[in-house]
Simulated assay, not measured.
Amino acid sequence: MKGLIVYKGKYGATMQYGIWLGAALHCPVAKSDFVRPEQITQADYLLIGTSVYIGQLQIKQWLQVNLPLLEGKRIIFFVIAGGIPDKPGEVRSYYEKCVPASLRETATCFYLPGRLNYGLLSLKDKLLLRIGAWFAARKGQKIGLADYNHVQREHLAPVIEAARLLEATYSDPQKTAL
């Protein structure tokens, strides 16, 4: 059984989770920009990681472009956002909005906490974050600007378990489909 881990992120948290998954599952890891169509078609299953950026999944366009190759594949998504676990419903809405329904039908999705290193943000992202915090404050909500890092290998345990179950299902034809 061949798996492929594809990721797209902005500041490194998604890539870190992808690397850890690749090591745990002995699967190749590739940034979405460098994935060739034949890699998708040759994979039995995919783990697709993406960060959330301004209410959108970074991987959204890549999913649209590769939709014909992805349909029918077993997919496990891992979505990284700073708002987890504070706002899991909000992050779920991004997933539902950005991942085509044909992929969501058979996919599993996990939400993982991210990180913020304000000093590493681009000037544009700093400005957007400050504007977002200002609008949130007007609604009585809070968006923090302080650094945090919740990226930990331990958060991947359910993702790894789901991938191993998927592998076991594929390798044992007596087991029923997930």
Rank of each mutant, 00 (worst) to 15 (best):
E154H: 08
A163C: 09
K60A: 11
K60V: 04
L70I: 02
G144D: 07
G119T: 05
L47E: 07
L70A: 04
P113M: 14
G144I: 00
F78M: 03
G114D: 12
T176R: 02
F110V: 10
V29Y: 04
K124Y: 06
L103A: 00
Y53F: 11
D33S: 02
T106G: 13
S102F: 01
K87Q: 14
A163K: 13
F77N: 07
D86L: 11
I54M: 12
E161K: 14
D125N: 09
L166R: 03
I54C: 10
I80C: 10
Q141P: 11
L123F: 10
Q42A: 15
Q16R: 09
L57M: 11
L46Y: 04
L165I: 14
A163P: 03
V6A: 02
L70H: 04
G119S: 08
T108E: 10
Y45I: 08
G83I: 04
L4W: 04
C27P: 14
P85G: 06
L57N: 03
T106K: 00
G140V: 06
A133F: 12
W20I: 09
F77D: 10
L4S: 01
Q58E: 08
R92W: 15
Y11Q: 08
A162W: 06
A23E: 15
P68A: 02
Y11I: 06
G114N: 13
L25Y: 07
K142N: 12
Q152M: 07
A133C: 13
V91I: 15
L46E: 01
G12N: 09
G3T: 02
I160H: 06
G18N: 04
A81F: 05
A101N: 08
L156R: 08
L69S: 06
L63R: 03
R74L: 15
G18S: 14
D86Q: 11
A43T: 05
D125K: 06
A81H: 05
G18Q: 01
A133I: 12
I76A: 06
K2H: 12
V65E: 11
G144N: 10
L145S: 09
K31R: 08
E90Y: 12
R74M: 14
W62M: 01
A136M: 15
A43R: 10
A101P: 14
D33W: 00
K142L: 13
A162L: 07
I80H: 01
V35N: 02
K10C: 05
I160Y: 03
A146S: 14
L4N: 01
D125F: 05
L123D: 10
A13Q: 10
I54R: 15
N117T: 15
L57R: 07
T176C: 00
H150I: 05
T108V: 07
V52L: 05
